[in-house]
Design a protein around this nucleic acid. Structure first.
Length: 910
RNA sequence: AGGCGGGUAGCUCAGCGGCAGAGCGGGUGCCUUACAAGCACCGGGUCGCAGGUUCAAUCCCUGUCCCGCCUACCA
């Protein structure tokens, strides 16, 4: 690691390496920034706070494209606000990620030692996980550094840190005290692979092809049968009723009769239930398995039915399944069908697609099961969180997400927070062997709070990972203590995250923030899109279409990756993702290379530049320098672009901001300003140029300095490298990280200068176009005659004809008020209403010339007709706003003038 | 089933009431002393379809067809 040299070191002042090599320069800067504490925000600083927390990645994770996108966006916001003089704080951290981490370590344990976690025991296993965390927990943090993220590392948090864990326990205990946490037997989602309960959100539904199987239940009194249909035949082992619609004439009189279970022998009733049964569907009779289906569970509660659980924790049939005990659900399905067939009760079968719940983590089928778990009562928490968004205390960007938020929040269900895992925050409840009532406490209690018994054992379960992450915006700042950090940085300003965790995380944070802090956790939620491959398919290892951001950083640099992502970050709408192609990185890298070379050009011409002199002469505005047109123009453009970028960022239009900067640098600074500067910086440009040299140098440095500062939040490394090399006045800060973000200096805004330059550019382009279309090499150095429609334009073009001549590479430029036939053969093109005549060596192909002019004329005629029609329409003149009418009138006049010029040219051609 | 988005140049996407834009790709010509990872110029679109509102519609409204996502249900 080389310590970067400060700008005062003379040997680094005036040159850049010949080629842009991101890998070398990026490594140099990050540690330097950290060492200088540029990313640290002091909670006592007398600046307006701006704060944000990172969505904590899994501690065992590795940076993927989604992280790269989010972190790039977040770093853009943070660096921009920091440069805009806010006390900007971006808080880093990681999440213990209960199931994910435990699964990874269990797999490793099996692979290396051939053991399960039960072989080790709880304490030993947890030790293993902590070990694992020590080894791999910093990897993702290093990767965030490689990406350039300006996180406040002094504030690094982990959801299992002692203080953070205390906050989680505090949260649990308080909610329990308030009656918002309860323990109950409910039908929950059971992951048979991980052997734990899941919340509703952790279940993903997939459409699969299945069989709708029909069989008959015989009535106990032998008076007939009822045919039911099911996709899960094995659950008939737990059936405790058959439901029919009370109004169904087909089943009139059957309600109240009993059915004898054909396999297990017990009897159960036929019930009438209008909620569960849809008369239109099938036979109108529904088998009811209250212990394994959410709707049947509700029905069972309504009718006080027995609830027979037939599955064990591994998803295998238990004792209640009689002869099928020990079979998996799939095996049991087959066996039960065989038995029913043998009994002559099979009544038919058809295929149907239905959706089946899968565990988000283990991707195995989730079984609804009856189980005693801890729940959070959500409605009381949701109500204020709904109001906060309604009242605009939290804003979603894009706004359309608030609808999705409301929909979910208004239909919220209680949250199952206990998990049958070992890795996580253990439930702070102790069960009493005597009175059976759990004691919930912040620290291990001596005796039961209810009966005083000392026979207490702590609840074995841990809490859902999200039960700790929903405290993230304030637990990371010291809650439940009243810290200075909370006072300064809470509520945070912005939250950026992918829309996929809107419910998991964002909604819950709003609820927790309001409940525990009494204030929303963030003012604005920016929901970014998800990244897919270039075909729009989700990146996955199985498909082999994963693009690894670390590969890209290594090959092309973090700057190029960041810029590519920013360029693609338009507003996030449902169903639209960022289709990421490696070509986007190539484009960004080409841009970086362009900047690099533009700077090399500048530095080659700045050896004798005196930054202090330029700073002094322009301290009061441009008047002190008497700039020429190119300088007036580029300095004015720099102001406008700064304004545009600032506005775009304020409105979260990231791609717009990136494109505005790109266009300014490439098309304005490089394509025009540097070209305009070249001649006047050249050694043999004459005494006039020598006198102006410092102004051109100053404008060039300023244009690049503004460009680098605008671009810094997007491409932090290359902009720092270049900015350090640019000559600066003595008052400049030590790093671009702590410079001010460019803002408009109205004194340098020069409307007339921009208009004149626009005219010059259009004329130059017209001349180039004439030559390119006729294949006239630029070495030809033709003379050019311009005829203009009004004196104002004539004055301008007369004034700047040397610029036109230089940029269009012509011999000499003459400007005339009106046409008149030129004596030499010419080729003609229009630049608005300026007629551009390029003098030729020999007569042009008159036919081709005429064709072109006729085409031009036809378009002008169309335009004239269009405007005449509009302006001739009384309704338009009556109702359209005056500025629109004025604009149209002006355009009509211009079009008329252009048409006249074309007609003259055509007349000359005969 | 309900909700939300999207359908604009060959591709990826901006624009969302007043003469259709960008990047890439394509074509032509250039080693113009920062950059061939470059420069200059050129082609390319009845803005998904049908109605309606308006002086004016790619943009607003209604309907319709595709595509994607989310939520719920599916005996």
């Amino acid at each position: 690691m080389t310590t970067p040299t400060t700008p005062s070191s003379p040997e680094t002042q005036d040159t850049l390496e010949k080629t842009y090599d991101p890998s070398r320069l990026e490594k140099r800067w990050y540690d330097h920034w950290v060492e200088k504490k540029y990313f640290h925000a002091d909670a006592q600083a007398p600046k307006a706070p701006w704060s944000m927390v990172i969505p904590p990645p899994n501690v065992t994770g590795s940076l993927h494209m989604g992280h790269a996108l989010g972190s790039t966006i977040e770093d853009i916001f943070t660096r921009w606000r920091r440069m805009a003089a806010y006390n900007a704080m971006w808080l880093p951290g990681t999440d213990h990620a209960g199931i994910a981490t435990q699964t990874v370590v269990e797999r490793e344990l099996m692979k290396v030692e051939g053991k399960t976690r039960h072989d080790l025991g709880r304490d030993e296993f947890i030790k293993k996980v902590w070990n694992w965390r020590e080894r791999s927990g910093n990897r993702i943090l290093d990767q965030l550094k490689a990406l350039g993220c300006s996180l406040d590392w002094d504030r690094l948090k982990f959801t299992m840190d002692p203080d953070y864990s205390a906050a989680v326990i505090e949260c649990f205990v308080r909610l329990h005290e308030e009656g918002l946490i309860y323990r109950a037997e409910r039908l929950i989602n059971w992951d048979v692979e991980s052997r734990t309960a899941l919340s509703d959100l952790e279940v993903e539904y997939k459409e699969i092809q299945g069989e709708l199987y029909e069989f008959a239940y015989p009535l106990a009194d032998g008076s007939g049968e009822l045919v039911v249909a099911t996709t899960r035949t094995e659950t008939m082992l737990g059936d405790t009723a058959v439901a029919v619609h009370p109004d169904d004439p087909r089943h009139a009189g059957k309600i109240g009769k009993m059915i004898k279970h054909p396999i297990l022998g017990y009897e159960f009733p036929i019930i009438g239930d209008a909620t569960l049964v849809d008369m239109e569907f099938g036979t109108g009779a529904v088998k009811v398995t209250p212990a394994h289906d959410p709707n049947d569970f509700e029905c069972g509660k309504r009718h006080n039915l027995k609830m027979i659980s037939i599955l064990d924790v591994a998803g295998k049939i238990n004792d209640n399944g009689g002869p099928f005990k020990g079979l998996s659900a799939k095996e049991a399905r087959k066996a039960v069908k065989a038995k029913l067939a043998e009994l002559g009760l099979e009544r038919g079968s058809k295929t149907m697609t239905h959706s089946v719940g899968f565990s988000q983590r283990s991707d195995t089928i989730v079984e609804p099961m009856l189980s005693t778990q801890w729940f959070v009562k959500m409605e009381p928490l949701a109500a204020p969180a709904i109001a906060a968004v309604e009242e605009g205390k939290v804003k979603f960007v894009p706004e359309s997400w608030s609808k999705t938020y409301f929909h979910w929040m208004n239909n919220i269900k209680d949250w199952c927070i206990s998990r049958q895992l070992w890795w996580g925050h253990r439930v702070p409840a102790w069960h009493c062997a005597d009175c059976k009532v759990p004691t919930v406490a912040r620290t291990t209690p001596d005796r039961c709070a209810h009966c005083g018994s000392t026979k207490l054992t702590q609840d074995e379960d841990v809490l859902d990972t999200w039960f700790s992450s929903w405290l993230w915006p304030f637990a990371t700042l010291g809650w439940p203590n009243e810290t200075r950090e909370l006072k300064t940085f809470y509520p945070t300003t912005v939250l950026d995250t992918g829309y996929d965790i809107l419910f998991f995380w964002v909604a819950r944070m709003i609820m927790a923030g309001l409940h525990f802090m009494g204030k929303v956790p963030f003012r604005t939620v920016y929901l970014h899109t998800l990244v897919t491959d270039e075909k729009g398919e989700k990146m996955s290892k199985v498909k082999g279409n994963v693009i690894d951001p670390l590969d890209i950083i290594e090959k092309h640099g973090a700057d190029s990756l960041r810029f590519a992502l920013a360029w693609l970050t338009t507003s996030a709408s449902q169903g639209k993702n960022i289709k990421f192609a490696i070509g986007n990185v190539d484009d960004a890298r080409r841009f970086a290379n362009k900047i690099w070379n533009a700077t090399r050009f500048a530095l080659m011409n700045l050896q004798d530049y005196e930054p202090n002199r330029f700073a002094d002469r322009t301290a009061e505005g441009p008047d002190g320098a008497e700039f020429e047109l190119p300088e007036r123009w580029i300095l004015s453009r720099a102001q406008r672009v700064s304004d545009d970028v600032h506005k775009a960022l304020e409105e979260f239009r990231i791609a717009d901001a990136a494109q505005i900067i790109y266009h300014y640098i490439w098309n304005e600074v490089c394509d025009w300003y540097i070209e305009l500067a070249k001649g006047r910086l050249s050694k043999d440009a004459g005494p006039q140029a020598a006198e102006n040299r410092w102004k051109v140098q100053g404008a060039l440095v300023t244009a690049l300095d503004v460009a680098m500062r605008l671009l810094h939040p997007f491409m932090p490394f290359i902009t720092e490298e270049i900015w350090q090399k640019l000559p600066k006045p003595d008052t400049a800060p030590q790093s671009i990280v702590i410079t001010l973000y460019p803002i408009t200096d109205v004194r340098f805004v020069d409307e007339a200068g921009e208009a004149s330059m626009d005219l010059v550019q259009r004329v130059v382009t017209a001349i180039r176009s004439v030559r390119a279309e006729r294949n006239i090499p630029s070495i030809a150095r033709n003379a050019v005659i311009l005829t203009v429609a009004d004196d104002y334009k004539k004055t301008i073009l007369d004034g700047y004809k040397s610029i036109v001549a230089e940029q269009a590479k012509c011999k000499e430029v003459t400007v005339r008020r009106t046409g008149g036939a030129p004596s030499e053969p010419v080729a003609v093109a229009m630049a608005g209403d300026v007629e551009v005549m390029v003098v030729l060596e020999s007569a042009a192909d008159a036919g081709a010339e005429k064709d072109k002019l006729q085409k031009e004329r036809a378009k002008l005629v169309r335009d004239v007709e269009f405007y005449n029609k509009r302006l001739g329409n009384p309704a338009f003149v009556d109702k359209a706003p005056p500025d629109v009418i004025e604009k149209d009138k002006a355009r009509l006049a211009d079009t008329h003038a252009a048409l006249a010029k074309v007609d003259e040219a055509l007349a000359r051609l005969g």
